[in-house]
Design a binder for these strands. Structure first.
Length: 229
DNA sequence: GTCCAGGGCCGTT
DNA sequence: AACGGCCATGGA
């Protein structure tokens, strides 16, 4: 299936989502850096529903520790308790503290310094950090850094396998496939928005139709998909 | 009670 | 390189 048709059919079904997983965070009164909230959210939401993460983010805010320096120095046992609702709290607490220490020590707690680099350098840097794999790194680059990179998640892989698209089911291959195609089709448009939008559309598709147990009946891609046949 | 959620790490083959 | 076990809570 042509990625452009794919994009357009999903857009026709779900519309302009202007989807941003941490959207609500931007409209609440708080004096913290929204980019940092995105980074923390990206770690916390690993294999975890966002509703569970919201509780944690709110808790961190209420305790006024949702900033690099506070989390870097916060007692780990206390942190585990604060993030409990996000699951995997032992490893996540450890990883969060480690990440904050890195931003504090290497970038003087200044995210401008960190994001003021080329995407490839930022990505390499992120992937070296314990607890940050490809999807988390790319989410941080796209949503916190506002830089154009296409995020591949479990939903994307599932959909790619079922349609199917002519790519191997590896992260990098799928990412390159969509990036090169979308770049070509949407010259002139802001790639950050295109990648953001397509990811949002895929999530909607996967949540509503392309579930673990797919509901193919009214799927907008029924005619294009080989899975249900 | 069971399933699943927008992963990543580590040990084993 | 690929795969399985593991980590943990909360909502459907």
């Amino acid at each position: 299936m042509d990625p452009k048709i794919f994009y357009e059919k999903l857009f026709a079904e779900f519309g302009d989502l202007d989807w941003w997983p941490m959207d609500h965070l931007y409209h609440k009164e708080n004096n913290s850096d929204p980019r940092f909230e995105v980074i923390i959210g990206a770690i916390l939401t690993q294999n975890t529903s966002w509703s569970n993460v919201e509780k944690t983010i709110d808790k961190l805010k209420r305790n006024r520790v949702l900033d690099i320096d506070s989390l870097a120095s916060l007692d780990e046992v206390k942190l585990k308790d604060l993030i409990r609702s996000s699951g995997f709290f032992n490893q996540k607490a450890n990883r969060l503290k480690n990440i904050c220490k890195i931003f504090k020590n290497r970038y003087d707690s200044n995210l401008d310094l960190f994001f003021d680099n080329k995407i490839s350098k930022i990505r390499t840097e992120l992937l070296k950090i314990n607890g940050i794999g490809p999807e988390t790194a790319d989410s941080i680059i796209l949503y916190a850094g506002g830089k154009p990179i296409f995020v591949v998640d479990a939903y994307t892989k599932r959909v790619c396998k079922r349609i199917p698209f002519p790519v191997e089911n590896s992260y990098e291959d799928i990412q390159k496939y969509f990036q090169s195609n979308l770049k070509q089709y949407y010259k002139g448009k802001k790639l950050t928005e295109v990648y953001n939008q397509l990811h949002a559309l895929i999530v909607e598709l996967a949540k509503n139709y392309c579930k673990t147990k797919p509901i193919c009946n009214n799927c907008p891609l029924k005619k294009d998909c080989s899975f249900s046949k």
